[in-house]
Design a protein around this nucleic acid. Structure first.
Lengths: 146, 146
DNA sequence: TCAGGATCCTTGACATTATCAATTGTTTAC
DNA sequence: GTAAACAATTGATAATGTCAAGGATCCTGA
């Protein structure tokens, strides 16, 4: 019964570890975003914008009120990092799209997450593949009710 | 060359997956915190308070200005979830400690992270152990410069 | 020792992010 | 075609964030 490396970790232990990793990653992300004059929230929004997203969808992703998103997008749009586009099939909806500049700045933020990069570099190809496979199995369940 | 399950994932792919897991976990956490009348920030602070922590240390962990922490702790203290204690060896320092009620409420928040719990439940004992070991190796590098 | 610099926390002014209630325009269901 | 439902915005207000400045305490070195 080793206290340091349990053969079968408690769900609570695994949860705690996963939370710690998530927290550390967030610190890394927030610090990198600040270097580029972005607030954490602005960076988080840019990170979500792989494709066009309705305001409402953003609110759901950010776990916040829809009215909040209006102001956030206003500011990002004012800095030219984001654009509002009308939706083709529903005129109520406005789709948010990252501009080239927006995509570029978030790319640089991700590049600068040194702690995260450094940590991942300690994993060999095989371990990386194992971790990737496990996390990929976790992902759908985690995103279920979003 | 399978596009869905790469044998050796790119570092970028692994990074992206890790970020997605972290984001989903945060959503789960924020939603559970709201159920208990806590803002995300308040819950995040409570989650950090395993032991006494100086205000300054909290600011570092939250990646924010020290002055910000004053107000956050003021409100948590007003609700009886947290206490300020003088430091024994340095009278400038105030250590923040979670009260019994504070510990209880954050325990319940963690309990209610259903998406995360559900996702972890899909892993068998062996996979859990593997994931735990891999994440444990990642952790020190991620927390290095905090 | 004690003067200067550094550190910890707080305050005050202000920008950003969050909530809620109400409004407008549009869609959907009946 | 009307009523209910939904998307986004506005306005009011609270919470969170930054920065500059200040008081208290610690530390270092002449």
């Amino acid at each position: 019964m080793s206290a340091t490396t349990p053969e079968t970790p408690t769900k609570l232990q695994l949860l705690e570890l996963l939370a710690a990793i998530g927290t550390a990653q967030w610190r890394d992300f927030a610090a990198a975003a600040a270097h580029h004059g972005l607030t954490s929230t602005q960076a988080k929004v840019l990170a979500q914008l792989n494709g066009p997203l309705p305001m409402r969808a953003l609110a759901t992703l950010l776990v916040c009120d829809a009215s909040n998103v209006t102001g956030i997008i206003d500011r990002l749009e004012g800095r030219g990092l984001v654009r509002r586009e009308p939706d083709a099939s529903d005129r109520r909806v406005k789709n948010v799209v990252a501009t080239d500049e927006g995509r570029e700045i978030i790319r640089r933020v991700r590049e600068e997450m040194q702690a995260t990069h450094g940590a991942l570099d300690t994993l060999g190809a095989e371990d990386s593949a194992t971790l990737y496979a496990l996390l990929a199995r976790l992902r759908p369940g985690m995103e279920k009710d979003a």
